[in-house]
Design a protein around this nucleic acid. Sequence first.
DNA 1: CGAGCGATTACCCGAAAGGGTGAATGGAAC
DNA 2: GTTCCATTCACCCTTTCGGGTAATCGCTCG
Lengths: 212, 212
Amino acid sequence: MSANISARPIRVLAIDDHPLLREGIASALADQADMTLVGEAVDARTGIEQFRRVRPDVTLMDLQMPDMSGIEAIRIIREEFTDARILVLTTFQGDVQVSGALRHGASGFLLKGTLRKELRDAIRAVHAGRRVIPPEVAVGLAEHVGDETLSLRELEVLRSVAGGNANKSIAAELGISEDTVKAHMKSILAKLDARDRTHAVVMAVKRGIIEI
Amino acid sequence: MSANISARPIRVLAIDDHPLLREGIASALADQADMTLVGEAVDARTGIEQFRRVRPDVTLMDLQMPDMSGIEAIRIIREEFTDARILVLTTFQGDVQVSGALRHGASGFLLKGTLRKELRDAIRAVHAGRRVIPPEVAVGLAEHVGDETLSLRELEVLRSVAGGNANKSIAAELGISEDTVKAHMKSILAKLDARDRTHAVVMAVKRGIIEI
DNA sequence: CGAGCGATTACCCGAAAGGGTGAATGGAAC
DNA sequence: GTTCCATTCACCCTTTCGGGTAATCGCTCG
């Protein structure tokens, strides 16, 4: 099944703030003739710098990193290098994170429960221009296709709600009337199909819309 | 710095459902003369079985596993083997998870951002009978020492609140009066120092008291 | 056995939430 | 320019929430 037998190996860059996981990736690639790990980075900023320097064929990227969201990093890289192949390596963070990453140019996903062989197959597939979406991720995505997204203002309101603020406080915080906050809340509840503000926060966290 | 130069090596068991991370652990231990990986398991059940079979000196255990909480697995192992040394390898899950693991016999913690060297030093320290608590974990713990814990009933109520249920629904669900639910809510808000039910759910999730 | 605690219920009260409806503004897209 | 949409605000109303206070019951731990 190994492609690239005689061709130059697939050059891989790993961007992840978990040293032991990077170690595992290195080990999974070490004995493969058709791929080689050409760089590692512990955060998004150095990851992007590394990308510019080594120009990897495939980049493995974590979504949660200390300095910047992986999605933002993907956007920046793909803006500069349109043909960059980026595989997101993460625990499932909700459909919104996933669709955001895909929208900004990710080529696929790998859950961290991935086996060595699955990792290697995914790298080859992505390098060959295919998309890699594990079934559980695809299902999570499918559950919310066509859902309306929250507006920026609605996100601000929802984050404040998650902080335990009443509509009146949120109104003061955002410099708008309480009635307006209520209007936003109505829209938020409808869009998230939530029963009350608490449920809305829970749904938003589950779906990767906000973090707490 | 390596202890155990002439003694028999420290026998290590790794229980974690992330294959690549286990690979990283294996790789970090591979070139160490004074320690050896004697077993691996992907879930708590087989992890406990493995423990009984190989009797490791030090066990590395993830807290989130598919079949059983790592804390429960720690309890079971320590009930049978009082002198088992267990190192919890996890992303920080909130003070309640941490204190629960310590209470049930964990010897220490390692965040998944741990370096190879830190992992090896921690294994040696735990094997020597010391506790290993990273500063950030200790700080998280310290912030809530002396806090009252939620009763079982309060947990049931809070989980239902997180599901978007009104007090009246919760009352029906639990077969008690709405006034009783309100009484529990008052206690929950006080114990978690939360401003409203939404805030209470957020705090509880952050602190590892409930999962969503 | 009394003290303490968890669980239960009741009542009163004001504040907050949320549903319905309608409407004005302003910017972006077409 | 007109349509679409986010944002803003208002008024109505009922339901729910949350604070205060007090009491009963049963279990456990000194």
